[in-house]
Amino acid sequence: MSALPAPLDASPPALVGARARFASNALRHREVQLLLAILLVGGVSTALHPNFGSASNISFMLADSVTTMVLAVSQTVVILGRGIDLSVAPVLGIAAIGVGFPAQDHHLNILLALLFVLLIGAALGVGNGFLVAVVGIPPIITTLATLTIYGGLQFIFTSGQEVISIPTSYGNLGSADVVPGVPWLLVIGAAVVAGAYFMLTRTVPGRSIYAIGNNSDAAFRAGLPVRRVIFATYVISGTLAGLAGLIYLCHTGSADATSGTDSNLNLTSIAAALIGGTTLRGGRGNPVGGALGAVFLSVALTAMVFARIPPIWEPAGVGVLILLAVIAGGEGTHVRKMLQSAGGARR
């Protein structure tokens, strides 16, 4: 590991020179922006409907965002390496039913369940990683295909049954608070985000994801194990999606053949990551932004209900938030510059 070249020893989103400083400034900016936005939406809603600010509602909004939060971290890791993972939803579903049935029928210990979901997720992530990094199929196509394949497996595994009751240890984790307003699930979500942040910014493999996402050709020439790192991002993404499956199971108390895929978690998790400031061109963004993006989505959508906006407009709300976040993040100008630059070869 010590044989790694010098540029990676630089500060976190290990880019080079002024652009790196600009990028990391922008990052912090986005997180502050999101925090302010969350406080603004929350404040206005509480002023209009005092119940919005109740500990119970805050706890609910936070707990409800954790599944998306963990998946947003998945997406962040993959997108940083210029990939995308459309299969997180069925991976979540397979993990949820994979431990949900043993939990329901044989009271599977929750720590064992944790181990199992991580293994299930990692195994499915290996499938994606193999197709992307070894075979060389573009990520969007790979995960589009595994979305259908994993989704089918989820159906086959459930064989028409559904998980309808979970042991109390699971249920407590899914709905209890540490202190009023702070659910246990949020602690798990925060731990995942912190772990991912540490991994991405303080470890060599993590920082090489940034380097590869930023310029994989240069990273390759610098001797980074590009394919292994890309492979690893999909395994990480799958593993976290598996964990999200356990969170989903505990939070909703149920799981069935369409858990995950039916509530559009693929797109919502990508949306959260993008709102959080991760850019599709790779190399820019971090899991804290994605997590805040997930919280922001949850708070904003709940605020829509309090504002008596009919629920059919919820998807539109998500769409508008994505556009606003992107325009506010200045990605537009960034991209336009890239478009206009003479060396703008598209690969």
Binding site: T67, T252, S254, T258, S259, D262
Partner: peptide, 9 residues
């Protein structure tokens, strides 16, 4: 939307 997660929310 006929799914438990959305119904819960």
């Amino acid at each position: 939307q006929s799914n438990q997660a959305t119904s819960l929310t």
